[in-house]
Amino acid sequence: MPSSTPLRAATAGTIRAGAALTLTAALVLPTASPAAGADRPHGAPPAVLPAPTGDHPVGTTVLHLVDGEREDVWVGGPRELMVTLWYPARSGAGRTAPYMTEAESAATIDALGLELPADTLHRIRTNARLDVPPASRRGPFPLVVLSPGAGLSRTQTSALAEDLASHGFVVAGVDHAHEAAPVEFPDGLVTDCAGCRSGEWALGAVNRAEDVSFLLDRLTGSDAVWRWSRVIDDERIGMAGHSWGGTATAETLLAEERVDAGINLDGPYYAPAVDAGLDKPLALIENDQGQAWDGVENMWPRLTGWRQWIRLEGSGHSNGTDRGVLMEQLGLADALTPEQWAAQFGDIPVERGLEAVRAYSVAFFDHHLRDGEQPLLDDPAEAYPELVVVDP
C-alpha cells in the first residue's frame, strides 16, 4: 500500500489547491445549520439520487485494482485504483448500495465542518443493488468509463452512472489514487488528493489515461478480475469525465485505441492532446460562466472526427455531478454564498441541469457505441433548450 496523508489532516489544503482546476473552493463551506434535513421522517434517507430513466434495473460492485508494474507519480509505491461498476441487472431485487462508505462520509463531513451525522453521506439512497447478477441475456453491453474532477470522487457521478447503466451500459467509475478524495481502500486507509497540491494538471491527465488502459486490461480478456466481465463488449468503449476527468478523457482518446468516443464535462485541454488533435468523436459540455477553459478554443480546430461543443445555459462547473441535487436535499444550499453557488451550479435548477447532462450522455454513447438514431444530437436544444450548440 502506498503511503499517504490521512484525509482529516490534509483536506482543507487539498481543496484550496485544487480550486484552480475544479473550483472545489466552493466545497469549503461555512458550518451548516444543525437542523439541515431535520424535517425528514425518522429512518428516512437524508437524500435520494434521481431515479434512472432507462428500462434496466441497476446493479453495482466495487473493485480494488493494484498495478504492480507502475509507480504512483504522486506518492510512490504501486499504482492503486478504487473502481465502482454499475451495470444492467437481472432484476431489481437485492440490497441497495450505499452512496459512500461510512469512513468516506465521516471524513467528508469532518473536513468540511458540517453539523451532520457522520454517516449522512453513507445513508444517501442510491438506485443500485449491490453485487446482484447482471442482465447477461441482453448483453454484451458497451462500457463507459467515468473519471471525476480533482479532489472529488467517483461516487459523485453516481446519478449519471446509474442512468447509463439503466440504458444498457456497463459503467466504470474510477477513483484515480491521490487525485480523488475522500477514497477508502480495503485496509481502511482514507486518502486525499496529493495530486491537487502539485498543480501538475497535464501530468495528471496523462496519468489518468494510463490508469484507464490498466483498467481495461483488468476488466476485459481471459484474466478479467470481475466475475461477470463477459457482459462487457470490449469492442465498444467510451469515456466521460468531469473537469480534470474531462481533460483525461481527451488524453485517453489519444493514447488508448480501445476507447472510441468521449465527453468532456467542463474541463480544459492540455498537451499532448491539444497539440495532436483527435479523429474520434468528442463532445464538450461547458459551463455558462462566460470564459472557456484553457485549451478549448485551440483544441476545437484539431478535432477531425465527430465533434460537438455545447454550452449548458445557466450552468456552473458541477451541474453534471450529484453535488447540487444532494446539497439542496440536505439543506446545504444556503451554506454557499450566492457567488459560490453560481460558480458551481449557475442559476439553472440543479435537477434540470443534471437531467440534461444525463440525457445528452445517454444519446451520445448510444449513437457512437451502438449506432443508435439519436435526434437529440442533431438538435440538442429541441429536447433541452439549455443545451446550446456553440459555433466558434
Score class of each variant (00 low, 15 high):
266 D>V: 06
359 A>E: 01
164 L>I: 06
17 A>Y: 15
215 L>K: 02
260 D>T: 02
64 H>Y: 06
32 A>P: 02
348 I>A: 06
366 D>Y: 04
119 D>L: 09
119 D>K: 09
107 A>I: 03
353 G>P: 05
97 A>W: 09
23 L>K: 09
166 S>D: 03
362 V>Q: 02
283 A>M: 11
87 Y>P: 04
133 P>T: 14
104 E>I: 08
289 Q>L: 15
288 D>S: 14
376 L>N: 10
46 P>R: 07
196 C>H: 14
377 L>T: 01
12 A>I: 12
17 A>G: 01
93 A>K: 13
211 D>A: 04
136 S>K: 13
330 L>F: 08
38 A>T: 12
254 L>P: 00
73 V>G: 09
255 A>N: 04
349 P>H: 04
343 A>R: 14
105 S>D: 09
222 S>Q: 12
368 H>V: 09
310 I>E: 03
81 L>E: 12
317 H>C: 11
209 A>T: 07
33 S>Y: 03
83 V>F: 13
77 G>N: 12
264 N>Q: 04
320 G>I: 03
260 D>E: 13
316 G>R: 10
118 A>S: 15
223 D>M: 04
209 A>E: 05
98 P>H: 09
199 G>Y: 14
346 G>S: 11
225 V>G: 05
104 E>K: 12
46 P>L: 10
218 R>Q: 08
163 D>V: 00
14 T>G: 13
218 R>K: 06
72 D>Q: 08
212 V>F: 01
172 A>S: 12
302 R>H: 12
172 A>I: 05
347 D>I: 09
183 V>H: 07
210 E>C: 00
306 W>A: 07
157 T>K: 05
211 D>C: 07
291 Q>G: 11
290 G>A: 07
17 A>S: 15
383 A>I: 01
